[in-house]
Design a protein around this nucleic acid. Structure first.
Lengths: 204, 204
DNA sequence: ACCTGAACACCGTTCAAGT
DNA sequence: ACCTGAACACCGTTCAAGT
């Protein structure tokens, strides 16, 4: 039974506009968030948009190009999110507080973004790796700046920043791969976090 | 042209024995090492073994069961490898040297094992996660013991062990996702490693 | 310019039939 | 007990034909 499917459009139930590449990218990002890279499947997405596979191939050369577009969009959005997060902590009094803040906020934002989680799960994917690399570089530069603000000389600030970011990545791996090894109680977690910040910010 | 394909057997070019579940698991592990979890594809593996897909389904319920078998095998082999690595470092004089050793050896062994790399890339896969969790727990316990040997009280030793293992995981992520951010020269890497070990082993 | 519908290739899964 | 070969479903890709 050929029922007319509801479909993305600007005018409600009225005239339906054509799909754009943007529409497909939107749908792809949604799919990544829900089921990872593997969920970027042309046929199911087409069904969701109320179109056919043939329509997709008018906008994109292939599935790879769709993933490319989705990653590019995520990266630019992610940049703005990082900047916003930075602005949010800028008024904190001490650099150590900002560091502590980063340890709390960034994983929260990170775990909260299902797309980031999915991309981290596919960090070695040839299309994902360079995106992750640029995002990493940007975040790392910011963390290093915090150590500069703490009075560390540039080279040492970079090393410390790298350590912090390394720990951050490790935390994400643990949270998503083996959360059971992390401190169980809130009290233990606070103790652990204190040890972490203390250890990483300590001077000679 | 129907050429008789060479096929896994015990007796060289002579009589060919039947395939076993083991044979399929072997081939699956090879495939994971070469192309990740996604490379565990029934049809191509069957072709490589000189058999048909139908043969596979006599030994396994489905593709998932094959992956399960491959992961189980890798885990048990990995256990032995860890034990061997531990034994190799046991004669080192100081615990700090053992720690430094771990930082050098474990990533080396880890990066050297393409299966581990592939599994880490799919850390959130429902079949992979529990395996990784158990392996993590085992390694973490060992690292914590090193800190106990260093004279840290148990709770603190666990925290330090967790930090070290977190850093280790972060390193792996960086090495495979954004190696460019790591210190470029050998000299800088040594300096960084020194800072790392010094920072993580320092007492109050 | 944008899309449909049919076609083909590839791989997962099933199963009747062979040895 | 172990395997083949044909069949079907699902998805990526192509393309002639429609509006």
């Amino acid at each position: 039974m050929p029922v007319a499917r509801e479909r993305n459009n600007q005018t409600g139930a009225g005239a339906r506009r054509s799909l754009t590449a943007e529409d497909w990218v939107d749908a792809a990002l949604t799919a990544i968030g829900e089921g990872g890279l593997a969920a970027v499947a042309v046929e199911p997405i087409a069904k969701r948009l109320g179109a056919t596979k043939g329509s997709f191939y008018w906008h994109f050369a292939n599935r790879e190009a769709l993933i490319e577009g989705a990653l590019a969009r995520w990266e630019s959005q992610n940049t703005e999110r990082v900047i916003a997060a930075v602005d949010a902590t800028r008024t904190d009094s001490t650099a150590e507080q900002r560091l502590r803040q980063l340890f709390k906020e960034v994983p929260a934002a990170t775990s909260g973004d299902p797309v980031e989680v999915a991309l981290l799960a596919n960090a070695r994917h040839p299309q994902v790796a360079p995106v992750l690399h640029r995002v990493t570089e940007r975040r790392l530069a910011y963390v290093s700046d915090v150590f500069t603000d703490l009075g560390f000389p540039p080279a040492e600030a970079r090393r410390r920043g790298l350590m912090v970011y390394t720990v951050h990545l490790g935390q994400i791996s643990l949270i998503h791969g083996a959360p059971q090894v992390l401190p169980a109680s809130k009290r233990d977690r606070k103790h652990y976090m204190d040890t972490l910040v203390y250890t990483l910010t300590r001077r000679d």
